[in-house]
């Protein structure tokens, strides 16, 4: 089980950040964009369905939908930023593990927005953000790496 791609989508459903964790060609990036784009409908659906009187909805939305190659997980912040994570479709995944990664990605986003040079709603381009994201995602074993226990 590996994370294939991480995406941050802004409040107006504008892509702010999309990164494939494996080297990918333009075509593959196109495909990832497509999968993430489709997942936005699923996010809206989840929010609409779960909303009842007296209902408390968590930010973590869980598995949005499986595709042939990926499993798509979603997370929605209070400021309407969606975090989409694509997992390679191999072995079953523990839900709380994904949730922990999502929380850490959210924390990273909050720290990034506290940067006075960050513009809200604009694409995120920061080497520090890239590095921090990699360190979060590396909780999961890389394809060539050992399939040992997870660092948390």
């Amino acid at each position: 089980m590996t994370i294939a791609c991480v995406a941050f989508i802004g409040p107006q459903n504008n892509p702010m950040y999309l990164r494939s964790l494996e080297p990918a060609s333009d075509d593959q990036y196109m495909k990832l964009h497509y999968v993430v784009h489709c997942s936005l409908d699923a996010v809206e659906e989840k929010v609409l369905l779960k909303r009842g009187p007296g209902d408390v909805q968590e930010s973590y939305l869980g598995l949005l939908y499986p595709t042939e190659d990926y499993r798509v997980y979603g997370y929605l912040t209070n400021t309407h930023v969606k975090i989409i994570v694509l997992l390679d479709d191999e072995a079953p995944v523990k839900d709380d593990l994904v949730m922990r990664v999502m929380k850490r990605l959210h924390n990273l986003y909050v720290d990034t927005t506290s940067n006075p040079f960050h513009k809200f709603g604009m694409p995120i381009s920061s080497p520090r953000f890239d590095a921090a994201l990699e360190s979060i995602v590396s909780v999961y074993p890389r394809p060539g790496g050992s399939v040992g226990g997870f660092k948390t």
């Binding site: 929010v47 968590e58 400021t79």
Partner: peptide, 11 residues
């Protein structure tokens, strides 16, 4: 607000 709503359930 980005920071303060971090650990709250969805409003």
């Amino acid at each position: 607000v980005e920071r303060y709503t971090r650990d709250k359930p969805l409003l």
